[in-house]
Computed example of a mutant assay.
Amino acid sequence: MAASLPDQSSTSQPHSSISNPKNEQRTTNNEELAEHVRQGLSRQPKALSSMYFYDEVGSRLFQQIMALPEYYPTRTEFEVLTRHRAAIAQALTPADGQPFHLLELGAGDGLKTKILLRELLAAGTRFAYAPVDISPSALAGLADSLRAELPSLQVEPLTAEYTQALAQLQGQPGRKAVLFLGSNIGNFPPAERQQFLGALAAQLSPDDRLLIGFDLRKDPRQIRAAYDDAQGVTAAFNLNLLTRLNHELGADFDLAAWEHFAEYDPLTGAMRSFLVSRRAQQVHVAALGQRFEFAAWEAIHTENSYKFTLPQIEQLAAAAGLRVQQVFQDEQQWFADVLLAPAE
């Protein structure tokens, strides 16, 4: 889940027009948030970034979402990593057994990554784990928890944007094995997704590897249910964005006048979420000294989550100068962690 307008200060990269996944609390200043809202509600169609979903309440709601029976992505990727952990660890490790850097873009709490970290440590593999984020506090918290839980793990946090982190390691010996898990790649619109993959590929040496999580296309009803659960937790999560704007920017959104709407397009693989105005209304945002007009049933776009086919993944990789080496899937073939290498 997630979405965003362009924002170079985001703690949960990547940056895109409707893209920015992170299941952790986002800290920001009111000036940044206010400018984002001014831009997002002045455009047509209107859009707000779901990276701002993750205040304290939003983060708690997202934890509930991940435990819902409808929300399959998290537990399915857990299954993939658990089922194939030995093969994935071997694929990430250089054939000559030399030490390497394991970078993770957007590590979050590292819960899924620990499956691979434990496998690598148990095999006696020589590597350093480098979680990457632009938030020093988020990295410090993750590093402290890893050192306590996996004391033999060499943790080297990198405070940088994604491509900058890869560039920092260009001159160092050894392989870079890069993780981008959680189907975060699906939060990019198509053009920006291709641009992002190309930027990553440009920083990779021939022996480097890239493991990306892709949520695969499946029954459209199942996908839609994952973003519009029967208990209404996802609706509360989406609407909480308006509550946050009321609290932090002095906005006067009447939550009873808004509803969550989610729809999946099986032609494009796009899962989109919206906040829809139930009536014609004006909303005043005190921090901006500005009013915004909404027509009845006008929508604010808050999220994209694209789903993929395996041939589409191969095409994306090829266009970015990458090639698919291995595909690791769950038993039902709902999700794939795909190992990519620079094209020869």
Rank of each mutant, 00 (worst) to 15 (best):
Y227E: 06
N240C: 05
N246L: 12
A226M: 08
R224P: 00
T234W: 00
L242P: 02
L249F: 13
V233N: 02
D228K: 14
R221V: 13
G250S: 03
S205H: 14
L204E: 02
R209K: 15
P206E: 12
S205W: 06
D215I: 05
G250K: 00
D215W: 01
F214Q: 11
Q231G: 02
D215P: 07
F261V: 15
E248G: 02
T234C: 12
L211N: 05
D252G: 03
L211D: 02
A236Y: 00
A230H: 12
T243S: 13
E263F: 08
N238K: 06
E263Y: 14
K218Y: 03
D215R: 08
L204V: 04
D229P: 12
A236N: 09
F261L: 14
N238D: 13
A262C: 01
Y227C: 10
L241D: 04
Y227F: 15
A251M: 04
A235F: 08
G250R: 03
R209T: 14
G232F: 08
P220G: 06
V233W: 09
S205C: 10
A251Q: 00
L255I: 10
E259F: 14
L255E: 05
H247W: 10
R209C: 14
D265C: 12
P220A: 05
V233M: 02
L245W: 10
G250T: 03
V233S: 08
Q203N: 11
I223E: 07
R224L: 12
Q222Y: 05
A235E: 02
G250L: 08
A226N: 13
D215G: 02
G232N: 03
R221G: 14
N240A: 04
L204I: 07
E259K: 15
F214R: 07
A262Y: 08
H247Q: 15
W258T: 10
T243K: 14
N246G: 11
D228R: 13
A235M: 03
E263W: 11
R209F: 03
R244C: 01
D208E: 08
G232D: 05
F214C: 06
N246W: 11
N238G: 08
L241E: 00
D219T: 12
W258P: 13
F214D: 02
F237I: 08
F237R: 08
A236K: 14
Q231E: 15
Y264R: 00
A235L: 00
Y264C: 01
L249Q: 04
L239A: 09
I223N: 14
I223T: 11
F261R: 15
T243E: 10
D219Q: 13
R217S: 10
N240M: 08
A257I: 01
Y227G: 04
I212G: 07
A225F: 09
W258D: 01
Q222T: 11
L239K: 07
G250M: 01
I212Q: 00
